[in-house]
């Protein structure tokens, strides 16, 4: 589904490489975990996949087509769920969903259906008329995810989607990610929580200092150990340092 070849990126001409020649293959319908400490390059990779950063060196292709060309023909096929609560606190849950679907140019009948589906998927129907600023942290995370789903994307990019939520909400979000991928859609899941990646991702890439240190099916990467042990072994330091 997603093929990344020798991808490098630096934010300014003389800045150090944020991504240093990484290559990855992400299968259709997979939940692919990007695991690494802060500064490993996870958010940079997610931003490149979302088309937020221009002119990377290397290639990104989706089903064999360059990313830009594929996005031009599939404008709603990639959705980003940022780490922040990227919505409007003064709008209600339903208004937020209607706005983010409207801004993608989805016509009204389809928009209503997609918003209802996103509400139901994130189990937000009960708070649909509440302002986003009145929601708890867990419900805000669910709204953040639901907004990512309103365009019915084929690829969902999740950047640290469970930061700052309680265990019950985290469990709900992980379950939602599994349900989304079960429909044959692809998820790129960035996190520095190893247990989350272990629980939800069929594939994992371990990143550090802009490089992919190990990548593959989660079971193969772990080889009977925990992801933490694998990370320690290949980097010499803990993920939490």
């Amino acid at each position: 589904m997603i093929r990344i070849g020798s991808l490098s990126y630096r934010y300014r001409p003389n800045a150090p490489l944020a991504l240093d020649g990484i290559s990855l293959n992400i299968a259709r319908g997979a939940v692919h975990g990007l695991l690494g400490p802060n500064g490993a390059g996870k958010t940079t990779l997610i931003s490149l996949l979302a088309g937020l950063l221009p002119h990377p060196a290397g290639q990104i292709s989706i089903v064999g087509e360059p990313l830009d060309a594929w996005r031009a023909t599939h404008p709603r096929a990639i959705a980003l769920v940022p780490q922040d609560y990227a919505f409007y606190p003064m709008l209600t849950v339903a208004e937020n969903l209607a706005f983010f679907s409207g801004v993608q140019g989805i016509p009204r009948p389809q928009r209503t259906r997609l918003c209802d589906e996103a509400l139901a998927f994130a189990r937000l129907e009960a708070v649909a008329k509440q302002r986003a600023e009145e929601l708890s942290g867990g419900l805000r995370r669910r709204l953040n995810l639901a907004i990512g789903l309103v365009g019915a994307p084929e690829i969902l990019l999740l950047d640290e989607p469970t930061v700052g939520v309680d265990p019950a909400s985290r469990q709900f979000l992980l379950e939602a990610v599994r349900r989304f991928a079960a429909n044959g859609r692809t998820v790129v899941y960035s996190s520095h929580y190893m247990e989350e990646v272990d629980a939800v991702c069929q594939e994992v890439s371990i990143l550090d200092s802009g490089k992919v240190l190990r990548a593959g099916p989660t079971g193969e990467v772990k080889q009977g150990r925990t992801l933490e042990q694998v990370f320690m072994e290949i980097t010499g330091h803990s993920l939490r340092e």
Partner: peptide, 8 residues
């Protein structure tokens, strides 16, 4: 950022 990712 989200809007730009949605090609707005």
């Amino acid at each position: 950022q989200r809007l730009r990712a949605q090609r707005v």
